[in-house]
Amino acid sequence: MKKQNSLKYNLIIALGIIFLVTAGFLIGFNRRNAQISSSVLSIGITMIIIGIIRKIRQSELVKKDERIKKLSLYGLSYSWITTFILITVLFWFDYFGFLNITTQTYYSIVFATMIISAIAFQKFLYNKGDIE
C-alpha cells in the first residue's frame, strides 16, 4: 500500500511540475492571457505542495482506515443536522422579527457553523473511539 501511495504522490508532484513548466511557457510566449497563466501556475504549485506534504506524512496517514472513514461520515452528518437546526432557528427568528441580520452575516454564520461543527464532531468522535 505504501508503494502505491508513494507512486501516486510522485505522480501528483510530476503533474505539478508539468503545470509549472506549462505556466512558464504561457507567461513567456502568451503574455495577453495572464489569467490562464496564473491559474495554471496556482494549480501547479498547489499540486506540488499537496504531493510533498502527503509524501512526508504517508507513514502516519493511512487514508483507508475504516474507523476514521466511519467517524468522519458521522461527524459530517451531525454537522449537517446542527447546521439545519441553526438555519431553521434563524429563519423563524427572522420571520417573527426577533433578529435582523443581513444576508452576508447569515451566510457567514452558516459557513462558520458548518466548518466548526464538522471539525468539532469529528475530533470528539475520534477521541471517543466508536459510535454505539
Binding site: V62, K64, D65, E66, R67, I68, K128, G129
Partner: peptide, 21 residues
C-alpha cells in the same frame, strides 16, 4: 492497513472492527 489508534481502540474494546478487518 489501519492507523495505530484503531488497533488501540479495538484492543481496549472501544471499537468493533468490520468483519474484513
Amino acid at each position: 492497513g489501519v492507523r495505530r489508534e484503531t488497533i488501540l481502540f479495538i484492543e481496549s474494546g472501544k471499537y468493533n472492527p468490520s468483519l474484513k478487518l
